[in-house]
Computed example of a mutant assay.
Amino acid sequence: MSTPPNALPVVTRSAGFEGVGRALGRAVISQFRGPMLMALLLPFAVALIGAIVLIWLFWTPLSEWLQITLFQWSVVNQLDTTLMALGLASLKLWLIPVAATLILLPLSGILGLVTAAVFIMPLVLRHLSERDYPDVRREGGNALVASVWNALWVTVVFVLGWFFTLPLWLLPPLAVVLPIFWWAFAFTRMLRLDALADHASPQERKILQARHNKGFWALGTICALINLLPPAWFLLPVLSALMFSHFGLEALRRLRSETQP
């Protein structure tokens, strides 16, 4: 049986990290265009207001709960005794504020990312469609519903994963690896779908996500590493949306060029 000329190609191999550097460069250029500079304000404002509200509502009860919970563990009490014997500050002076910050601050950050995914991504895609990818047709459907549902489940997994792996931060390597992993997960799984939902059909999304899985995760990891730098928090929600959009739309353009006679 012959293959129809407009049939989508079968995914036979991964594209690896092809296109990651190109998407990053294009995103930086796009970030300094007027509409994208204005788009920075919304996710930053949501994250800032979210941080203030979370601290106001939950700092005291969370600190009290951590005080009771953490110091029930014999290992924590032994470590506290050892530090005091060495003339160092007691864990009770700094462990609770640090733990409370590590719980509440990521919550405000994920709110900013959700805002970027649900509200800023459509603006980004509209801007890039008109300016950089006018030849890429919109063949997606129910993009808003898919985006909201995707944002909800990714947020739940991120919050639960972050919270339940916090005790592992006591192991030095994991204190660095785990935050990078969870933020890479959040950026990749939240923005990968949003970058393709408007323009790619379900079949195209399936092919692109399989073919470019490593590329999407590379972008998510880059975003997670940038996220370690507090001054970058203002830029990152929109910049990450631009990175994933450039990567996804260029990949979709190339995929469709393979099916053209």
Rank of each mutant, 00 (worst) to 15 (best):
M1L: 12
T3P: 00
T3F: 13
N6M: 09
V10W: 07
V11R: 05
T12E: 14
R13W: 08
S14W: 01
S14Y: 05
G16Y: 06
G16A: 13
G16F: 03
G16M: 13
E18C: 04
E18D: 14
E18H: 09
G19T: 03
V20C: 04
G21H: 05
L24D: 08
G25K: 15
G25R: 15
A27V: 06
G34K: 15
M36V: 05
L37R: 11
P43G: 10
P43T: 05
P43K: 00
A45Q: 01
V46Q: 05
I52A: 12
L54T: 06
W56F: 14
L57C: 14
F58M: 04
P61A: 14
L62R: 04
S63H: 07
S63L: 10
I68C: 07
I68T: 10
L70K: 03
N77I: 02
Q78C: 09
Q78M: 13
L83Q: 11
M84W: 03
G87Q: 07
G87H: 04
L88S: 06
L88R: 04
S90K: 08
L95F: 11
V98W: 09
A99D: 11
L102C: 01
I103D: 09
P106V: 05
L107E: 04
I110G: 01
I110C: 08
G112P: 03
L113S: 06
V114L: 03
T115K: 04
A117Y: 09
A117C: 10
A117S: 13
V118W: 10
M121H: 07
L125V: 08
H127G: 10
L128M: 07
S129N: 13
R131W: 13
Y133G: 00
V136E: 02
V136M: 08
A143M: 04
L144G: 14
W149Y: 13
L152P: 06
W153Q: 14
W153P: 02
V154Q: 01
V154H: 09
V157W: 03
G161H: 09
W162V: 04
F163I: 12
L166H: 08
L168G: 10
L168C: 08
L170Y: 01
P172D: 04
V177G: 05
L178S: 10
P179N: 06
P179D: 02
I180S: 07
F181N: 01
A184L: 01
F187L: 05
R189V: 11
L193W: 01
A195L: 05
L196H: 12
A197W: 02
D198L: 11
H199N: 07
H199Q: 10
Q203W: 10
I207P: 01
Q209A: 12
A210F: 12
N213W: 10
L225R: 06
L229T: 11
P231V: 00
W233D: 14
W233F: 07
F234H: 13
L236R: 05
L239Y: 04
A241P: 09
A241N: 09
A241L: 04
M243H: 00
M243C: 06
S245F: 00
H246V: 11
H246M: 07
H246Q: 11
F247R: 03
F247W: 09
F247H: 07
G248I: 02
G248A: 10
L249Y: 06
L252M: 02
R254S: 12
L255H: 01
E258W: 05
P261Q: 12
P261T: 07
